[in-house]
């Protein structure tokens, strides 16, 4: 029995080392759990933002197309009006020209207003740019966490992956609630807040 004791000790030591290694692995996996959980939560948020951008861009584009179609129709009508003026002039019906010209001026004013409406609708670009920055920021966070996980699995320092990428993160400025259609507080409620202060 006493001859076996050193072997028994050696086996005990081996088992203790093995247990310590298993504990280290378990600890490492527990450390990886949080970044994985956070990454999992951020993917749907980024997807949601990208879907919103797609929907809102399409809606804004349709609004502008409606106006463009109206402008094209008004220009066609104006061309017809100019032809009529030309006919009136050649037939000597000068009395009708004034009314036709008034009609054309009115059409030009409507066209001008429609062009301004298109300009106003272009505000969607600022809003979707912020939504895209939000989505990009979420994706960059996921990338960063995955790089850390890779580093931990390879037993390398966390910043190794960043160096490998060799690029700096762009500073992103955005409102996470930016939305083309959904305003959390409407203008009349804002006016009330300022009136109370006033």
């Amino acid at each position: 029995m006493s001859e076996n004791q050193p072997l028994q000790y050696r086996i005990q030591e081996e088992i203790a080392e093995l247990a310590a290694s298993v504990n280290q692995i378990v600890t490492k996996f527990k450390e990886l759990q949080n970044p994985l959980e956070e990454s999992r939560e951020k993917v749907p948020k980024a997807t949601e933002q990208l879907d919103k951008i797609s929907e809102q861009t399409e809606a804004a584009t349709h609004q502008m197309l409606d106006r463009v179609e109206k402008i094209v129709q008004q220009v066609e009508d104006s061309k017809k009006g100019l032809d009529e003026i030309k006919d009136c002039a050649s037939d000597g019906r000068t009395g009708d020209i004034s009314a036709l010209a008034d009609d054309l001026i009115e059409k030009a004013n409507v066209t001008c207003n429609d062009a301004y409406t298109i300009m106003d609708a272009l505000q969607f670009q600022d809003i979707t740019a912020q939504q895209m920055n939000h989505a990009a920021s979420l994706l960059e966070d996921i990338e960063f966490r995955l790089q850390n996980i890779m580093g931990a699995l390879k037993d390398q320092p966390d910043d190794k992956a960043d160096d490998e990428n060799g690029r700096d993160r762009k500073a992103r400025v955005y409102d996470p609630h930016a939305d083309l259609f959904d305003k959390k507080t409407d203008q009349s409620a804002i006016d009330d807040l300022f009136a109370r202060k006033g």
């Binding site: 939305d179 203008q187 409620a189 807040l193």
Partner: peptide, 22 residues
Amino acid sequence: TRSVKDDIMEALKAGVNNYIVK
């Protein structure tokens, strides 16, 4: 674009005279 009420209140406290949401 900021339309959350707390943000509007913060702007009001900072000293803006009026506020419009894009």
